[in-house]
Write a protein that binds this DNA or RNA. Sequence first.
DNA 1: CCTCTTCTGTTGCAAATGCAACCTTTTTTC
DNA 2: GAAAAAAGGTTGCATTTGCAACAGAAGAGG
Lengths: 220, 220
Amino acid sequence: MKQDGLFVRLSAHRLFAGMSEEDFSRALIMLDAHRRAYARGEYLHRMGEPLSAFGMVLLGTVQVYSDDPDGRGMMMANVAEGGSFGESLAFLAVPRAPVHILTTTGCEVLWLRTASLRTPSSDPFVFLLRDRFTAMLATRTLEMNDRIQILSKLTLRDKLTTFFTEWERRTGSRTFTVPFDRAALSDYLGTNRTALSRELSNMQNEGLIEYYKNSFKLLC
Amino acid sequence: MKQDGLFVRLSAHRLFAGMSEEDFSRALIMLDAHRRAYARGEYLHRMGEPLSAFGMVLLGTVQVYSDDPDGRGMMMANVAEGGSFGESLAFLAVPRAPVHILTTTGCEVLWLRTASLRTPSSDPFVFLLRDRFTAMLATRTLEMNDRIQILSKLTLRDKLTTFFTEWERRTGSRTFTVPFDRAALSDYLGTNRTALSRELSNMQNEGLIEYYKNSFKLLC
DNA sequence: CCTCTTCTGTTGCAAATGCAACCTTTTTTC
DNA sequence: GAAAAAAGGTTGCATTTGCAACAGAAGAGG
């Protein structure tokens, strides 16, 4: 596999942080990395099939969706550049993944297999990789806690303020651009697109925020 | 530490499944296990402090709560007998845990430290334990996905049917008892206690379910 | 057995919001 | 650059549901 620029782009990722370029290459080999480009709207994975590897987004944005029995789609995760998805399903080798995964933009994805992480080995490097992977999962559960906190709020206004506060904390700025369009954001918040538009309008009229497209500025 | 009965009670847990009693004892030593009893309503952990170990509930039920900035408590997890909590916070050694943990009944908890899981070692047994622990985390993220699905539903009726369907799947029966009282259940579903009571009544009147206390029977 | 506490259910009301219908703006495609 | 498609906004209306207040039932402790 060509590794052009991969080291530069991924050396900050928590899975590879602090590795030398040699170790990084070694990690990619161990994880049987392969790289693939996808068009906008293309499926990376279909529900009901096993996920043989987890993905790391090199370019673009992918979304993890779960279909309700009644067909209403539900976004489980929105993964931007540098993010990853499917770690748990791949690690556990779940035979029928309960989600489908698709792109919202043109994308490039690095697929990584977890098989070598589960094979006993006394190699300290394997140990390191496994430790990093476990830490990734632990971090993921903390992130999901954040989402659960938002979804647990009873009013849309509360959801939005929690969401904004989180992004302020995450970006360290009161102005930020989120990787969601309105429909995706309403999914993420567990609400309705038009209700979301309405509430954003209200908040702008009340002087709490300003926004243009997906860029928001907190005025509070 | 006394291990009376622990092997019998925990040998089915995914962390220890399939281990001989000797290996089990060895695991407890490696994880620096210690056992402690708590009274109903007692705090196992207070928000803002580091969690030096994760817990496994031997007896009773504990709840993980997160306080809103505005003080409204929010239940993040309800952990019944055989369940565990705090794995991510302990593994990552988060300096100030964002939750508090308390009992809802008299409880007995087995505390387990993750330090040995992070220390490089070529011991195959360490490898096994780490693998189990990682699988625990992966399973946890899948469970949280289920909760997120429930919380993402727009109506209380939808939340309840999803919740019931999940318990039907989990227990394999259309009659089951959940470890939540009404207040806890309303927290879990992200709604209001009285609204929950109302909707349960409605569903019973419509002949969809029957219930007595925390036991539910699906009639659909 | 009695008291006190906790849990659960009911109801009226006001506020929130899902939904449908429709329009405007932006983006994509050819 | 025109046409088509996608995204975003607005509004009215009906439904949902959060909230408060209260009452009955069950449980705990003496």
